[in-house]
Design a protein around this nucleic acid. Structure first.
Length: 201
DNA sequence: GAGTAGATCCTCT
DNA sequence: GAGGATCTACTCA
């Protein structure tokens, strides 16, 4: 199963990279335990001109440093003191574009995910929403700034292809503080997929 | 089904 | 010292 090359992430158009990530497999393999899911929802954060981005205005701190790395690395941070949010860094070095992975359709290791989340039975909330999917895949902030071609964490193309008509764009979720940029249609999701977060459309 | 409060802690000001 | 790229449970209807 081919792991996506760095050239996939280092393209200039973060919206195009986001569109191409849809349907790909996000895989973790901590301590030889494999869990994976197919990406069905994500959001693009378009660099220093995007008020919703942590890198708005060129802000650069120890936390968001991975966003300034060359594409193909992870950026994980803690939100609301509880949730670990997983991002894919794109574009060339010094251009802090990123894509927040918001939902997965579980593929491998469902039982392991269920144990991590502590649910008696698997249900669609297992990998719906960025906080939930990180928990299910065992991703925490310590996994920030890892290569997406490492043995423990990678994104692969298993040949699955989404039909273009299944995809839809919408404004991003939870970024009301971003003013007009909160209205940008930078969220991408698979229509009708039960793992997609937010209001049904 | 819709709306709201509370959890909880790291990061930056 | 404030607030956040969230989620769940609980209320009220």
């Amino acid at each position: 199963m081919p792991i996506l090359p760095y050239s996939f992430y280092r393209r200039p158009d973060v919206l195009q990279v986001a569109a191409d990530l849809m349907g790909k497999l996000l895989v973790t393999r901590w301590n030889a335990v494999v869990t994976s899911g197919r990406i069905v929802e994500c959001e693009a954060y378009a660099g220093i001109g995007d008020r919703a981005s942590h890198a708005f205005g060129g802000r650069r701190t120890a936390r968001n440093e991975p966003m300034y790395a060359a594409g193909g690395r992870s950026y994980v941070y803690l939100c609301y003191g509880i949730h670990h949010l997983f991002n894919v860094v794109t574009n060339e070095a010094e251009i802090p574009h990123a894509i927040l992975i918001r939902a997965l359709e579980p593929v491998e290791g469902v039982e392991e995910m269920r144990k991590r989340v502590g649910k008696p039975r698997p249900d669609p909330s297992l990998t719906r929403g960025p906080g939930n999917l990180s928990k299910a895949l065992g991703i925490v902030t310590a996994h920030s700034n890892l290569s997406l071609k490492s043995a423990e964490l990678f994104i692969a193309d298993d040949g699955y292809r989404l039909q273009p008509g299944w995809l839809a764009w919408s404004p991003r979720i939870g970024v009301d503080y971003a003013g007009e940029d909160a209205l940008l249609p930078y969220r991408l999701y698979v229509k009708g997929n039960v793992y997609v977060s937010g209001r049904p459309r």
